[in-house]
Design a protein around this nucleic acid. Structure first.
Length: 701
RNA sequence: GCGCGAUUAGCUCAGUUGGUAGAGCAACUCAUUUACACUGAGAAGGUCGGGGGUUCAAGUCCCUCAUCGCGCACCA
């Protein structure tokens, strides 16, 4: 066979990648059952499964996804070549709140708003938007080379997932692990929904800290505007300064709106060291205050409405935006009355804000569904302590265990349309005779379904079970899976929830190994963000340098759990490497035409390449992909190209030619997990009769 | 405040049971059409953040300090 024309010019990734992926995909070997069918002797034993974290179906892929997919795909391809019945299961997440926020921005641009829109119409619009993006995202994941089983592609809003997730809710309710309660929740006044603790973030603010006088008490606060309803003074039971008061004593004093009766409450949660050791409480708008109020059975009054505005109770200040104008006017009122004692304008504190819009969280008392976390977290903690979970990146075990040791009941109700409906039905909702019923079906004409949807993590937490068909499902033979590889930012958002649901539904931890990768940063080590303009699209980079080069650049020099800096220089370096391999192939093809000798493997060169392959295998098995990739790079370039070829060149005997060809086959074999496209392409030109058609399923050995 | 990570060549980073420092990029000197210029050969470049300890031996283990980054919790 003459040298194929394509080798006479440098490697052109754009011509190769699409067809190679199609060839692999169409072979059906991304589906494990087909491996068994084609090679029963190799694939009838162990399965190796990873459930891939579903990218949000609301935009394009970013560099972090490329790292995510590459890591998994390298391991998966390696395991497949090592005769594991590999199942890498892809999917997409409707990403409830996230997507709704994205869609709201789109609506805003169009001069529309979700408020007042018909629920079904809004849902349908977001659904169409998501489905469209979902396909774009899947297409981009494929470009990275993901050898995922797309026949099992799952969407969190697939009917079977939805009903399974609802089943779990019903089961948990029946087991006493879900309850309805009126409690302080994190309320975002912009997005008009409650949020879980992981959906808020902290923002440092420099505010003014005020000290006011109530009778003889000095009360410090950074939130005067919440003080309209305050009528309790809380002190520590053993505080000598207030020993003359007993719990329950009352007194009257001048306050914002006039003479007010205050009651003394003694509670141990007070820090005597802070300020004057006395505070007033606002139970409706502070969960700490709420806890105190609940304990002592105190009145709770709403001061700020769902839009963040002062309510009737604020008198003439009604309707003002609480934290801005409301605060200013409240202070003025108190100052006029001579009750303002001190202003510290440089008070630095941290306030929780909505992680999407940074609107300060205004706690509100709301009736919501909660998951009782303590019993679930206890088991998830135990699983880690007992070593049932192997953290490849062990530094995250502590974070995980800390989280599981300090569980907070989880609010799973969201006041948004985009999500899975909660299977709860109400009669006489909002009245004193309110009743609810938990179940899939509407129990009667006078009942209406809860309009809230589940927190997205309630469904994605069940992902490993959901994708495999839930308990009794046809794919549950793949459960528990081998690997969960995801971003380190999900160490407490997602990972513990999967463990919790996995244990709850099946009694088994859903995965054996957890590998948490770092974030993909720009070349200066900064986070990529649209506002900084330093976002690198993996697709654009692949168009410029080739996906194999991008994959290599993401792996080399990137250690598990640590962030990786991306730079075009680095990717360019591996583009050269890919081309080097291309030229090696050209040389071998040009010089080994018609040679068909058995190779004598009893020589240093053949032994050495086996040694390298074993080393790479060891590194991959230990999840040290960066070491494997580096080993590969150095062997191919600085040993095989620089030494072996130069050496053999001088003495091109038939034996040497056969050896060269053998070695190149070994090289593409061990390079394939890292660089699937170029290696698969080369394989098509160097494989002999009797070799498998696709490198994808070549035995590693 | 608590936790985690980082600090190694100009830049970005490797360095897996402790055994006299490595890569890519950049810069330098040669080679000049070679399978490959998306090249080859060579040289240069670091008291491994500071201090202390363990050890025959420390980039590596322990303690401590400093700086940077990330996460969590917070106090009315």
């Amino acid at each position: 066979m003459a040298l194929p024309e394509k080798y006479k010019s440098p490697y052109e990734s754009t011509k190769v990648e699409g067809p190679v992926y199609d060839k692999e995909l169409n072979s059906g070997f991304f589906t494990p059952e087909n491996l068994v069918k084609a090679f029963p002797e190799r694939y009838n034993a162990d399965a190796w499964t990873t459930i891939t974290p579903p990218p949000n179906a609301n935009g394009r892929l970013h560099a972090g996804h490329a790292l995510d997919v590459t890591l998994k795909d390298i391991i998966g391809r390696f395991k497949r070549m090592n005769n594991k019945r590999v199942l890498m299961l892809p999917g997409s997440d409707h990403a409830g709140f996230e997507t709704q926020v994205v869609y709201e921005k789109k609506l805003e641009k169009e001069g529309r708003s979700r408020f007042g829109m018909d629920r079904d119409i809004l849902y349908k619009e977001i659904y169409d938007f998501t489905i469209q993006n979902k396909d774009t995202v899947a297409g981009e994941v494929k470009r990275i080379g993901a050898s995922y089983d797309w026949s099992r592609d799952t969407f969190t809003l697939d009917e079977k997932v939805v009903s399974g997730v609802q089943d779990t809710f019903i089961k948990m309710y029946n087991d006493g692990l879900v309850y309805r309660s009126k409690r302080d929740v994190n309320w975002c006044s912009k997005h008009q929904t409650s949020l879980s603790d992981v959906e808020t973030t902290n923002k440092e603010l420099v505010d003014t800290f005020y000290t006011f006088k109530i009778g003889e008490f000095l009360i410090g606060t950074s939130r005067p505007e919440t003080k309209f309803g305050d009528k309790y003074i809380v002190v520590h039971p053993t505080d000598p300064r207030y020993s003359k008061y007993s719990h329950g004593d009352t007194f009257t004093a001048e306050w914002i709106l006039g003479e007010t009766t205050f009651t003394i409450i003694k509670d141990e949660s007070i820090d005597m060291e802070f300020g004057t050791g006395a505070m007033t409480i606002t139970p409706w708008h502070s969960s700490i205050d709420f806890d105190i109020a609940k304990k002592h059975n105190l009145e709770m009054v709403q001061v700020i409405d769902e839009n963040g505005k002062l309510m009737e109770i604020a008198g003439e200040l009604k309707g003002l935006r609480a934290i801005t104008e409301g605060r200013k006017r409240t202070v003025e009122l108190l100052e006029q009355k001579g009750l303002l004692v001190e202003k510290n304008e440089k008070y630095t504190h941290v306030v929780p804000v909505c992680y999407k819009c940074e609107t300060p969280i205004e706690p509100q008392l709301k009736d919501q569904w909660f998951v009782k976390m303590a019993p679930l977290a206890e088991k998830a903690l135990e699983a880690s302590k007992k070593g049932e979970i192997n953290f490849v990146t062990d530094q995250f075990r502590k974070t995980y265990e800390y989280w599981m040791s300090n569980p907070i009941d989880w609010n799973i109700s969201r006041q948004i349309v985009w999500g899975i409906r909660i299977p709860a039905w109400f009669k006489n909702k909002g009245t004193e005779n309110e009743e609810y019923y938990i179940g899939h079906e509407n129990p009667g004409a006078e009942w209406v379904q809860d309009i809230d949807t589940f927190d997205t993590w309630f469904s994605s937490g069940q992902w490993p079970v959901a994708t495999l068909g839930f308990v009794g499902g046809k794919d549950m033979e793949y459960y528990p899976t081998q690997l969960m590889e995801t971003g380190r930012d999900l160490v407490f958002k997602w990972v513990p929830r999967m463990v919790i649901f996995g244990l709850y539904l099946t009694g088994e931890v859903p995965f054996k190994d957890i590998y948490l990768h770092g974030m993909a940063l720009d070349e200066k080590g900064q986070k990529m963000s649209k506002s900084k303009g330093n976002v690198m699209s993996p697709i654009d980079l692949a168009d410029e340098f080739g996906m194999d080069a991008l994959r290599m650049s993401l792996i080399v020099g990137s250690t598990p759990g640590n962030d990786v800096s991306m730079s075009k220089d680095k990717i360019r370096a591996y583009k050269k490497f890919v081309n080097k391999l291309w030229n090696i192939t050209r040389f071998v093809l040009e010089n080994t035409e018609g040679v068909n000798l058995d190779v004598n493997l009893d020589n240093d060169k053949a032994k050495r390449i086996q040694e390298v392959k074993d080393a790479i295998a060891k590194h991959i098995n230990e999840y040290q992909l960066h070491l494997g990739a580096e080993e590969l790079y150095h062997y191919v370039w600085h040993e095989f190209a620089d030494v072996v070829i130069e050496d053999v060149k001088k003495d091109l005997t038939d034996e040497n030619k056969a050896l060269l060809k053998y070695m190149l086959k070994e090289i593409v074999t061990m390079a394939h997990p890292f660089m699937p496209f170029v290696t698969e392409e080369i394989w098509g030109d160097i494989r002999s009769e009797g070799d498998v058609e696709l490198l994808l399923v070549k035995e590693w050995k």
